[in-house]
Write a protein that binds this DNA or RNA. Structure first.
Length: 252
DNA sequence: CCCTGATTCGC
DNA sequence: GCGAATCAGG
């Protein structure tokens, strides 16, 4: 699997959107998480707030607080070479990362509330209700894990518009004549928290794009697609994957 | 353990 | 350039 223009573009967008490398890898398919990270760095993408980035506000005074530049653990393998590359650092006038801007959907309300305020372009902070920890997964990926740790309340089912996550393993990726034809379509690059991210078509296809309508405040989709995405749990017995299993006595 | 991103280095 | 192996923090 090579890094085509589109794949790189997807990687870029998702990376900047704060998607974990593992998810990006899944989305792209055919590559590992490491590959994604490696590529991201090679592309010169900004480093994202990682769990590893112990951003201690105020190192210990007088403490080294200095990492000897990487961890020369297996440095033994490269004895004669002695590649001393360190300098390539300060070279990014890039201002702080704006990534933190996008809030990844905090909560959702039961149906009905959704079609409430459709019009009003008021993008005030949607009434985020911490009482309903619903974390709808963007259909961007084929995640099917419905996590509702302790909220048996209104069962919501995510309706993934893309039943076939990885349909084309060996598809020769079209040249993608972008920037001209898709001018009127919402591309991955046009996504923002204000527009509907409902995918139309399949990634990789030249016609693939996103809904683009104004999204519901606090939701990743427009009113119409919210209705599609968040549906009351329907009787599903043929669900092989992980079934919510409401009140099953959990052994331990 | 799991997760995450970062880095190194053989290919 | 690529990415597995590895590291390191949460």
């Amino acid at each position: 699997m090579s890094w085509t223009d589109e794949r790189i573009e997807t990687l870029r967008k998702m990376w900047e959107d704060g998607h974990p490398a593992s998810r990006i890898a899944e989305e792209l398919g055919g590559v590992s998480r490491n590959a994604v990270i490696g590529k991201a760095h090679r592309l010169g993408l900004e480093k994202r707030p990682s769990p590893v980035k112990a951003d201690k506000s105020g190192e210990k005074a007088g403490s080294p607080a200095e990492k000897p530049a990487a961890k020369p653990k297996k440095a033994a393998a490269q004895a004669p070479a002695q590649k001393e590359r360190e300098a390539p650092k300060a070279a990014k006038p890039q201002p702080a990362a704006p990534a933190a801007e996008i809030a990844p959907v905090k909560a959702a309300q039961p149906l009905g509330q959704v079609d409430a305020e459709i019009e009003g372009e008021e993008q005030a902070d949607a009434g985020v209700d911490p009482a309903v920890p619903l974390q709808p997964k963007v259909p961007l990926s084929a995640r099917s894990d419905v996590d509702q740790s302790s909220t048996p309340a209104p069962r919501i089912q995510i309706h993934d518009p893309r039943p076939a996550p990885r349909p084309a393993p060996k598809k020769p990726m079209r040249p993608a004549p972008r920037s001209d034809k898709i001018k009127d379509k919402t591309s991955l690059l046009d996504l923002s928290e204000k527009i509907c991210k409902w995918p139309i078509g399949h990634p990789g296809e030249p016609e693939f794009h996103f809904c683009g309508e104004a999204s519901e405040p606090g939701f990743p989709y427009c009113n119409k697609h919210c209705a599609e995405a968040y549906q009351a749990q329907q009787p599903r017995k043929d669900r092989p994957g992980r079934t919510p299993m409401p009140n099953l006595p959990r052994p331990r």
